[in-house]
């Protein structure tokens, strides 16, 4: 029966994907199909709630706990992730501007930064919690450490991504360093910068939640998840996960939207299939 429903939904999806409105309807339908199948599996096989709660149970948990979820969201996302993301990205951009002035520094920082960007920086979470206490400051610091290097490496590489011909043109115009940055380096670096910023959005939320596992006040998404798992209150855990996924996707979407507005001229933004 589940297979039958799945086949029917997939057929509907195939039909939709061929139409012009399929661009946005197909993913929605796919998500809805997943939820329906999830609900059916749970109901038909009588899966106990402590293992996998049904989507409707999760929805009920969300609507019953809006104030708690909101408080956790503010603590973890707004105070921890968002402020850390802003500080980390700003620091990385400024550092990149400084580094870009010196070819020697650029050659030294890029490999080291690439190396550091691949490290499991989440591991610094216990150290920051030890230094800065259980409040949101330590979470923001972890996020700063996590987002700094990806943004730095991308920005430095982007600022260096100008053609010799373009640089010569700027020199012919007698452009000052500031003008060269404003009219040549900054625009050509923007796609790279946004690449880094988008990577940083998902890292930020993960960092903020991971850091809460090492100590937090009695509010926050990571705190709530670990305590509710201990109480086997799985619908509430999934509710937090849903909120986190929603917040993360929205954050990513906003940054991607800003990129679309600012980098409309770049080949990757001009539509058509890659």
């Amino acid at each position: 029966m589940i297979l039958g429903v799945w086949a029917a939904l997939w057929g509907a999806n195939v039909w939709v994907a061929g139409r012009s409105f399929g661009r946005w309807l197909a993913p929605v339908l796919f998500g809805a199909a997943l939820l329906i199948l999830w609900e059916m599996t749970v109901r038909l096989f009588g899966v106990p709630q402590v293992i996998l709660p049904a989507p409707t149970a999760i929805g009920a948990a969300i609507s019953a706990n809006v104030p708690t979820l909101w408080a956790d969201f503010v603590q973890t996302f707004v105070k921890g992730a968002l402020s850390g993301w802003a500080i980390g990205c700003a620091a990385a951009l400024l550092t990149a501007l400084v580094i870009d002035r010196s070819g020697f520094l650029r050659r030294g920082v890029l490999p080291v930064g690439n190396f550091l960007a691949a490290l499991p920086i989440v591991g610094t979470a216990p150290i920051f919690v030890m230094w800065l206490g259980f409040g949101w400051e330590s979470k923001a610091a972890v996020v700063v450490a996590m987002v700094f290097f990806p943004v730095l490496v991308n920005t430095v590489a982007g600022l260096a991504d100008t053609q010799p011909m373009q640089r010569d043109l700027m020199a012919t115009y007698g452009a000052s360093p500031g003008q060269r940055l404003r009219y040549l380096a900054a625009p050509s670096a923007l796609p790279f910068v946004f690449n880094g910023l988008k990577i940083a959005t998902t890292l930020a939320l993960i960092g903020a939640i991971v850091a809460e596992f090492f100590g937090s006040p009695t509010v926050g998404m990571g705190f709530r998840i670990s305590t509710e798992v201990g109480r086997l209150n799985l619908p509430m855990v999934w509710a937090e996960i849903a909120v986190a996924a929603l917040a993360g996707s929205a954050f990513y979407g906003i940054v991607a939207l800003i990129e679309k507005r600012l980098c409309f001229w770049h080949p990757s933004q001009r539509g058509g299939r890659p």
Partner: peptide, 17 residues
């Protein structure tokens, strides 16, 4: 059309959760 957006969304779910 249908898998790619969800693959991206899956990465915004904090893994630790």
């Amino acid at each position: 059309l249908s898998v790619m957006p969800w693959a991206i969304a899956s990465q915004t779910i904090p893994i630790l959760a």
